[in-house]
């Protein structure tokens, strides 16, 4: 099923070297920079999960705030309002997100939505979701939900904040990037790319478009929801304006585009470059010049799209990885 390239990547000393080196960073970095890297890893994970739909099958889904919101707000509400253990909350939220993803994929297929219609409908869903979250007290309403203090109790989905959260995010991000590699090396990835390039032709050669698209959407939604739960645990505060607003999806889409759509490491690269830049700018100048980091994201995106529309990853490969074969070319 899955081509050898995936297992080669899994066995690659480079990959584990980088991950291990990354895992040691909190030992040497201040808590401030550890925080920034944790946020960057959240976006690496989110952008890579989004990539399964947006990059590989070429459907620009703006509905992903729905999945992040489900993972974050629903699990938080279950914990705060009903006292349900967050591990269970994570599973319930992920299942809900998967179901929502399947519904969206079904609607897309059933009504044969074009690219534009898909963007618009998913945007409408995202807007509706944010209105529901803000208007429904169970999910925290407009004021959000405050989670209990993180005391590091693993059984309560607590990782002690700081380093613990960093390692959780590193693990999640690594897994999701590897899921990307696995999908790209599997029949699913091949089908998705066929669908992206020409859906009618894919159908004509016998690709079950509904099944492939639904699979991709469900995988992406479940992973996104899990990251959402971990993210809200790290933040301790479930802020609907951050976690259930379409703006977060737009950020994700832009990171993925800057890095390289549809490539396994592209979205990760985009998020790793832009998030620390943005967060540092926000930390240093946020008080004096609010919005500067978004402003710069915007400029970077425009410049990248105009200058190298396939993203920065191909550029990086040419610069750094020309000779080595440490990572498969996907």
């Amino acid at each position: 099923m899955i081509k050898d390239d995936f297992f080669k990547t899994l066995a690659s000393p480079w990959l584990w070297g980088i991950v291990l080196l990354g895992a040691m960073l909190p030992m040497v970095l201040s808590s401030y920079y550890t925080h920034i890297l944790t946020i960057a890893l959240v976006y690496v994970a989110l952008a890579s999960a989004w990539n399964i739909v947006g990059g590989m099958s070429g459907q620009i889904s703006l509905a992903h705030s729905l999945f992040i919101g489900t993972g974050a707000m629903l699990s938080a509400a279950l914990l705060v309002k009903l006292g349900i253990n967050m591990w269970a909350g994570l599973v319930i939220a992920a299942a809900t997100a998967g179901l929502l993803g399947a519904i969206i994929a079904w609607i897309d297929f059933r009504f044969q939505l074009g690219h534009l219609s898909f963007v618009l409908i998913t945007l409408a869903f995202a807007e509706m979701a944010s209105i529901v979250v803000e208007g429904w007290d169970f999910l925290g309403g407009a004021s959000g939900l405050l989670l209990p203090q993180d005391t590091g109790n693993f059984l309560d989905f607590q990782f002690g904040g700081g380093r613990g959260a960093f390692w959780v995010m590193l693990g999640l991000a690594t897994i999701i990037v590897l899921v990307n590699v696995a999908i790209l090396n599997s029949p699913l990835g091949y089908y998705l790319r066929t669908i992206r390039d020409n859906e009618k032709a894919a159908q004509a050669i016998g690709v079950n478009v509904l099944r492939q698209k639904t699979t991709a959407m469900v995988i992406s939604a479940v992973l996104t929801s899990i990251v959402g739960t971990a993210y809200v645990r790290y933040l301790t505060f479930a802020d609907p304006y951050l976690l259930a607003s379409p703006v977060i999806t737009i950020e994700i889409v832009l990171f993925a585009t800057v890095g390289g759509l549809g490539r396994a490491y592209g979205p990760a690269l985009g998020a790793l470059l832009l998030v620390p830049l943005g967060e540092v700018l926000r930390g240093k100048l946020g008080g004096a010049v609010p919005g500067l980091h978004y402003f710069i994201y915007g400029i970077v995106v425009i410049v990248v799209i105009l200058a190298t529309p396939s993203g920065l990853l191909p550029l990086f490969e040419r610069l750094f990885w020309r000779r080595s074969r440490m990572l498969p070319k996907i």
């Binding site: 402003f295 915007g298 970077v300 995106v301």
Partner: peptide, 28 residues
């Protein structure tokens, strides 16, 4: 105009980037 002939979605993303620039330019 330089985007003529690109995929429709790239144009969408470019205007999303433009949206960030305008919104936060105003904010700044």
């Amino acid at each position: 105009r330089p985007m003529v002939g690109y995929k429709f979605l790239m144009v969408v993303q470019l205007t999303l980037g433009l949206s960030l620039v305008l919104q936060n330019g105003i904010l700044m």
